[in-house]
């Protein structure tokens, strides 16, 4: 393959994997926007979504669409329950305490998955298609479907936030919870809803990752760094920014293969966080 095509191929691959990262990245950012805390247990909820897909698809034999829906609800419900039990009581101690507690919560949830499903690596029951070749570029149909699911999920979230009364209430609480309360919105209810939707999206992210890779308890933990990097690049709390950040991180990770051994791929996440903090402290889209 000639180099130009090589780069184009890496960019395409990066956009595909970036779109999958974007789903949990917007989850992270949505929760940050409404609750003003970084909830790193997004990682365990990704794994939970992946296992939910495994049960629905491989064990029960239902189609992937059902797996997506059930992963959303399961991860959303566990997200609300674990937030209520483990994180909410700590909220008055400040965002750093909650962020650290969310890492502990993440370990607990991952180990519960390990207890339930064991350490054996699982996989979804999906057909393997031959790559499509378009103008010299290879695209795996499964990756493309994942890209479409990710895009559909993001469009749905944007429509919710932009056009529905509950979505506007969510943005109002993100802007100013005290004023939202005066206007008749219950910030606690909206926070729970944001956690439900956010962790539900993390669950869907888990299904997308499971369609592309093996399922094990740390499947989310292995991608939490690029997810966090995407959210920081986009400006924490900026949902549209998180999408841009995820696409950028996805492409950068792929392009890094040109100059770095594959083992250093995860350094891209660190690098992106440093770049963001140094040059775009409010995110690459500039404002929220």
């Amino acid at each position: 393959m000639e180099p130009v095509n090589d780069i184009a191929q890496l960019v395409v691959n990066g956009l595909m994997s970036g779109a999958i990262l974007a789903v949990p990245a917007i989850a992270f950012s949505l929760i940050f926007a409404v609750l003003q805390v970084s909830n790193f247990s997004v990682a365990a909820h990704i794994a939970l979504g992946a296992y939910a897909a495994y049960v629905v698809n491989t064990v029960l034999g239902l189609p992937i669409v059902a797996a997506v829906a059930i992963a959303f609800v399961a991860a959303g419900v566990v997200g609300v329950a674990s937030d209520h039990l483990a994180l909410k009581p700590l909220r008055r101690h400040g965002p750093i305490t909650v962020a650290i507690a969310s890492m502990a919560l993440n370990l607990v949830l991952e180990n519960m998955l390990r207890f339930g499903f064991g350490n054996t690596v699982q996989a979804l029951n999906i057909p393997v298609y031959r790559d499509w070749v378009l103008g010299g570029l290879h695209i795996a149909p499964q990756q493309f479907y994942n890209f479409l699911i990710a895009a559909a999920v993001m469009v749905a979230l944007f429509c919710l936030l932009a056009f529905t009364s509950i979505g506007k209430a969510m943005r109002a609480v993100a802007d100013n919870p005290v004023l939202a309360d005066i206007k008749g919105i219950d910030p606690e209810f909206i926070s729970r809803l944001a956690v439900f939707i956010g962790m539900g999206l993390a669950g869907i992210g888990g299904v997308l990752i499971a369609l592309d890779a093996a399922i094990e308890p740390t499947v989310g933990f292995r991608v939490i760094l690029p997810i966090f990097a995407a959210a920081v690049l986009g400006g924490l709390g900026n949902v549209a920014g998180a999408v841009a950040g995820a696409l950028l991180v996805g492409v950068a990770e792929e392009l890094s293969l040109l100059v770095l051994p594959v083992a250093y791929r995860s350094a891209i996440g660190f690098f992106a966080i440093i770049i963001a903090l140094l040059f775009f402290p409010r995110g690459i889209l500039g404002k929220r």
């Binding site: 009364s165 209430a169 004023l179």
Partner: peptide
């Protein structure tokens, strides 16, 4: 209805969205 001295609007919402939230209790 209380109008605080500061932070009394939602800066990232449009003006019409602000008014919509303002009318949340009288839909």
């Amino acid at each position: 209805v209380f109008v605080p001295q500061e932070n009394n609007i939602f800066p990232s919402l449009t003006i019409e969205e602000n008014l919509e939230i303002g009318g949340h209790l009288a839909k």
